[in-house]
Design a protein around this nucleic acid. Structure first.
Lengths: 181, 181
DNA sequence: CCCGAATAGGACATCTGTGTCTTAATAGTG
DNA sequence: CACTATTAAGACACAGATGTCCTATTCGGG
């Protein structure tokens, strides 16, 4: 159905959309096209209308999230170790997953339980093996992770600290919040 | 210059704008007017154009933040105690300060150092009196506070837990992240 | 209760974004 | 190199938002 060239173009547009809409939710299709170095008509050929584009971005980010999570080997080691690995991977892919920081609740994809399931499984294991504070519900730990990512993301925009400094503060804070004690 | 009725209307519109733009950044002036139970022409009489309205909302939120912070008595007790009081007050006024969660960096008011100054002062005192982890820079603590608020805010939208449960999780996580040990 | 202040409701021109097409140029592939 | 797939560029109609204005109505303070 799709040629390699089409796949490349499609991906380029999606990444540009994440970038542009990430910094301005009101950006027009033309701006997105410019960011992708592509004519507006080309954007419209790949994505019938704006809702279709936004939905496609949502799916794209979810797929990427799946890959990122798998990359963190969520089954290996203790729950806390897995959580920290996942956190590290997510930090390094904020350019993609940062998309979720601008979805005004209703535009969220209807299902989107995948992230919760992955983190929940990790946290449950962490509860069982005693590496994660049993007081914290897994949904809260999940939100904790994402809120710290949000904060880290904000911190990397204004480079008060280097990216490495932000990453270690982020990981340090997460571990401290979540570990037992 | 302004009558009491005008003040009331103006405030009503600002609060409606926070509410509506908070759930949809692309909302029109008409929608904002409807949310405030006011004609679109009335909105335009109070705020010349959309940028003026958004700027006014920004100022309004900053002023409210000042009041909220003062209400938390930032000079009393240890730094950690003051920080927890501030966090509590901010949680209870998420309807207003939640506005800052949708500002895409560039639209932020150019100055906006007030929040950092207030929290910074608290954290510095906490460092001095030994109640706040000296490893954490005050800017990071500030971002930590705001990211946990973001998370708490997200949690209150989908009421998986009661508001009280979310508040105590929020405060618990903040204390654990920030306190020494 | 009354009069001025404030608002509702709507007309109007304008502008921007959107979605659809068409044609010429360009790119990639066999 | 040749041929096809893909794109750029722009015209077009349309919808919605915006900002300005005016008039009838309602509100509220004295």
């Amino acid at each position: 159905m799709t040629t390699p060239a089409q796949d490349r173009t499609r991906r380029t547009i999606l990444l540009a959309a994440i970038r542009v809409l990430g910094s301005n939710r009101r950006a027009s299709m033309r701006e997105i096209g410019e960011a992708a170095d592509v004519a507006r008509s080309t954007v419209h050929r790949y994505f019938a209308d704006r809702p279709a584009l936004e939905a496609a971005v949502g799916s794209f980010v979810e797929e990427e999230y799946g890959r990122i999570a798998e990359n963190a080997r969520p089954q290996d080691g203790t729950g806390l170790e897995a959580l920290m690995r996942l956190a590290t991977e997510l930090f390094d892919r904020l350019d993609v997953v940062g998309w979720w920081f601008l979805m005004p609740e209703d535009e969220q994809s209807p299902d989107a339980p995948e992230e919760d399931e992955i983190v929940s499984a990790i946290v449950d294991r962490g509860h069982a093996d005693g590496s994660i504070d049993p007081v914290l519900p897994s949904a809260w730990v999940s939100d904790l992770l994402w809120s710290l990512l949000y904060s880290a993301n904000a911190h990397t925009r204004f480079p008060r600290h280097t990216r490495g400094e932000v990453r270690s503060l982020f990981l340090h804070s997460l571990r401290k919040s979540v570990a037992v004690g």
